[in-house]
């Protein structure tokens, strides 16, 4: 088990909300989507792939089979789900440093929520309520979300550059356009390599499992 795959980390946190205040959360979520400037801090944290909050009513948990025992839940739950780049601490800390009031608004009505500042009780709260990720597949372990955005920008800009070319363009005009291209991409030209190790523990797991090499070696191992 590891919540880390390449440059990405998967986080699931599920926290109880009293059913009679759950609608307040829904209201906040609605307002946040309606007035995106409230989320500008979150969007500015470029290590985040995405973050999603949702309320699962106490009666809407899946019941998949008649053999599954019926439960009567006391609480509704808020599911927070996010993928991001970097370590758990970097992520949680970035949240609390940058948008503590925003966090408090989303979690405010959750049972025993500690507030995001001071930090240690908040760390404890998230850790306690986090559901570990037993299996995590990452199609692009080398890429952070910034890397993907940059690559998309490089591609789009290059294609547009090419489309704008014409046979009768002078050398000077071409050079000017080329310089413009470089300028437009000056924040997208970083080189992509593997992530620096996320934590010592994750690094050890990575070394032991060596999933890439296992996949390729498997047929031999069986023969």
């Amino acid at each position: 088990m590891s919540n880390v795959a390449g440059k990405a980390y998967a986080m699931n946190v599920i926290t109880p909300v009293r059913w009679y205040t759950a609608w307040l959360n829904k209201l906040y979520f609605w307002a946040a989507v309606k007035f995106p400037s409230t989320l500008s801090g979150l969007v500015t944290l470029s290590l985040i792939h995405y973050a999603r909050w949702t309320i699962i009513g106490r009666k809407s948990f899946p019941h998949l089979d008649h053999r599954q025992p019926k439960e009567t839940l006391k609480y509704s739950y808020m599911l927070f789900f996010s993928n991001f780049n970097g370590s758990w601490e970097q992520y949680v800390d970035s949240f609390t440093f940058a948008i503590p009031s925003g966090l408090d608004l989303f979690w405010k009505w959750n049972v025993r929520y500690s507030k995001s500042v001071p930090l240690t009780p908040f760390h404890d709260y998230i850790q306690y309520n986090q559901i570990e990720t037993p299996h995590y597949y990452n199609a692009y372990p080398l890429a952070s979300s910034n890397d993907v955005k940059s690559a998309a920008n490089v591609r789009a800009t290059l294609l547009a550059f090419e489309r704008a070319a014409s046979q009768d363009e002078s050398d000077e005009a071409f050079q000017k356009r080329y310089h413009g291209l470089l300028r437009a991409l000056q924040h997208d030209l970083g080189e992509m390599h593997p992530t620096p190790i996320v934590t010592m523990a994750a690094n050890q797991v990575e070394k032991r499992t060596q999933w890439q090499s296992r996949v390729f070696e498997a047929p031999n191992a069986q023969s």
Binding site: S144, N146, H193
Partner: peptide, 12 residues
Amino acid sequence: INYGNDFKAAND
């Protein structure tokens, strides 16, 4: 220092 993601510089 040894990584650049926060600076939009990938691994530079």
